[in-house]
Design a protein around this nucleic acid. Structure first.
Lengths: 138, 138
DNA sequence: AGAGATCGTGCAACAGAAGTGCATTTAATG
DNA sequence: CATTAAATGCACTTCTGTTGCACGATCTCT
């Protein structure tokens, strides 16, 4: 049993061939991926399978969904300590307007916001847009 | 010349009947509106016209586009002091998961975030999700 | 190992939002 | 009034997300 199989098993997700491939693909990427990205990476795969796999991964806390403002849902593997299915790991995300990649800034948490009376916060999403370190001549 | 016509004129937008109607509709709403909302409000209107009107309004700084995480673009009139077309009026938005409405919290600005080296911020989007003051028994 | 239930995958199809191209109408200008 | 530019309406396309159904694979329990 490989590391990946163990990881999936720990999260009560049956480690099928497809799932392992998708996990590997995401682990190899520094940035968040869209459904279409995975679809293009595996010519043979069905979009539905990928779609449902990502849904499953999300439910089981293996990946988290990211809304980076492009109106295309992206996904990224959760970090070891990420409890996003329980009490929201509110790190922020950065979207590069040049290379169109979105990355997790897991060290940067969303600061607490004081809301007006009557508003109850349950979740938060903060996306910074600009130029990432690969695209700035750095 | 009405107030609205003056407003549009000041922003170099020709005050046509349709545009005035759309402006009025948005001014009468406390929450941000989606293209479909306007479409439903005016049975006679073409979606394309509304679509392009909103684009025009956005370019001219009359409305700002809001991405509230629902994957449906919403729009809200800019406040008098809102210079969102120039240097981003970075107020935050609140999306109510119960009534599905999105409102601008113009008094609440997005706090400054220190990014890792090499990252250049140009824009930011912060959406708080939860229960709004109308939906909490307030 | 075999029977039955459950889960995963593939195929087809649909819904909704976003966006484009072109023709026609409406408005501004000389 | 004639010319030009802008606004609108209609048709159509694309893309993402989503669901239903059938088939195949896998697990469980005796």
């Amino acid at each position: 049993m490989t590391e990946i199989e163990k990881t999936l098993d720990n999260k009560s997700v049956r480690p099928t061939a497809m799932r392992i491939l998708i996990y590997k693909f995401m682990a190899g990427k520094q940035n968040a991926v869209a459904l279409t990205d995975i679809e293009n990476a595996f010519e043979k795969a069905e979009r539905t399978t990928l779609y449902r796999t990502l849904k499953t991964f999300e439910e089981k806390g293996i990946v988290h969904q990211i809304d980076d403002g492009t109106n295309i849902s992206k996904f990224a593997l959760c970090e070891p300590g990420c409890n996003c299915e329980i009490d929201q790991d509110l790190h922020l995300h950065f979207h590069c307007s040049q290379c169109d990649k979105t990355v997790c800034l897991t060290e940067h948490k969303i600061p607490h916001i004081n809301l007006p009376a009557g508003y109850i916060a349950e979740d938060a999403n903060l996306v910074i847009k600009g130029i990432c370190d690969s695209c700035s001549d750095h």
